[in-house]
């Protein structure tokens, strides 16, 4: 497996070297992005969702076809409140999955639940493909409520690792015992298991699409073993479309990545749906649609892709 992957990476690298970057837009026809379009869409994401930023990454891994300070996009410290596995058990009970692209490989993208399930409290945290109300030409406002609604209901849960310090002053300072620390020990069954993720988006020159990478941290902010990341990936994708690899812009560590081989096809399908409803999506909105689509693969990682503006121009 490892060797096969290495050979493949070598092949892909060679193709990337000898072929020039895409310069002509094929966004509507093929669901792919040119380098300039990736930069444009990234700028738009950063300006609408400031939790995302452009970064340069390691200088030795700089891609010459991208601007030096805009090599990839990243949002850090994104909470992942529970495991995708537990989420899916609930969905199975609801019986409400929708296959978006069920091709012969059986690697179709899944929308994690149908519209009818979204009424339940548990589902409100989780973005769904179906509520991306693509057909309407009006402003799309449905997405922000996912985060807002979830926060209020979870408010009573404890925050883990809450060390508090009390300045008792007077007597204890000179003494050798640090008796002024007060620790709030969370109730055992009440600990919020909050993993966090750094989510980065790189440009994959071979597939001409964005590519998502995940770097996980456990509840005490120690790096998470990449294998454990699979617990936070929709089980239809774990170990199939999601692989553990070297990051194109970081020197160290192994990172989980959603393999981009199907990205263009799925994006093309979404674009077709939009077009059939009379909306021509604008290319600078690509990453918003893309991140919404990624949410079906990593349903419990609550990154920001708030969309409170038009997707594109209505042609009616």
């Amino acid at each position: 497996m490892q060797v096969k992957q290495k050979v493949y990476e070598l092949y892909k690298g060679t193709v990337e070297r000898v072929t020039g970057p895409r310069t002509v837009s094929a966004f509507l026809e093929k669901g792919v992005l040119s380098v300039a379009e990736f930069t444009l869409a990234g700028d738009n994401l950063v300006s609408k969702c400031p939790t995302w930023s452009w970064e340069a990454g390691d200088p030795s891994k700089k891609k010459p076809y991208l601007p030096p300070d805009k090599q990839f996009l990243v949002t850090r410290n994104v909470p992942c409140l529970r495991r995708a596995v537990s989420l899916e058990e609930e969905y199975d009970a609801e019986g409400a999955e929708v296959v978006l692209d069920d091709d012969e490989d059986g690697e179709g993208w899944l929308a994690t639940h149908g519209v009818q399930a979204s009424k339940a409290k548990e589902e409100e945290d989780i973005p769904s493909m179906d509520t991306l109300d693509i057909g309407k030409a009006e402003e799309i406002k449905s997405i922000p409520s996912y985060f807002g609604a979830g926060e209020k209901q979870d408010e009573e849960e404890d925050i883990p690792d809450m060390d508090t310090y009390e300045d008792t002053g007077d007597d204890s300072i000179a003494s050798t015992q640090p008796s002024y620390f007060v620790t709030e020990e969370p109730e055992d069954d009440n600990i919020l298991r909050t993993r966090t993720y750094d989510v980065s988006i790189t440009y994959d020159k071979y597939y001409q699409t964005p590519r998502v990478w995940l770097t996980g941290y456990d509840e005490s902010r120690m790096p998470l073993k990449p294998e454990l990341v699979f617990e936070d990936i929709s089980q239809d994708h774990a170990r199939k479309t999601v692989t553990i690899e070297d990051h194109p812009h970081f020197l160290a560590g192994k990172h989980a990545s959603v393999h981009p081989c199907k990205h263009a096809a799925v994006m093309k399908k979404i674009i077709d749906v939009l077009m059939s409803r009379g909306v021509e999506p604008e290319v600078d909105k690509y990453l918003f649609i893309f991140l919404k689509f990624m949410a079906s693969v990593i349903p419990t990682i609550e990154y920001d892709y708030t969309m409170d503006f038009d997707l594109g121009s209505a042609s009616r």
Partner: peptide, 17 residues
């Protein structure tokens, strides 16, 4: 008495490397 929430550092593998 003023109590504050402590900081938990996040040290990336990249820093170690």
């Amino acid at each position: 008495p003023l109590k504050v929430e402590a900081i938990t550092s996040c040290v990336e593998v990249g820093f170690g490397d």
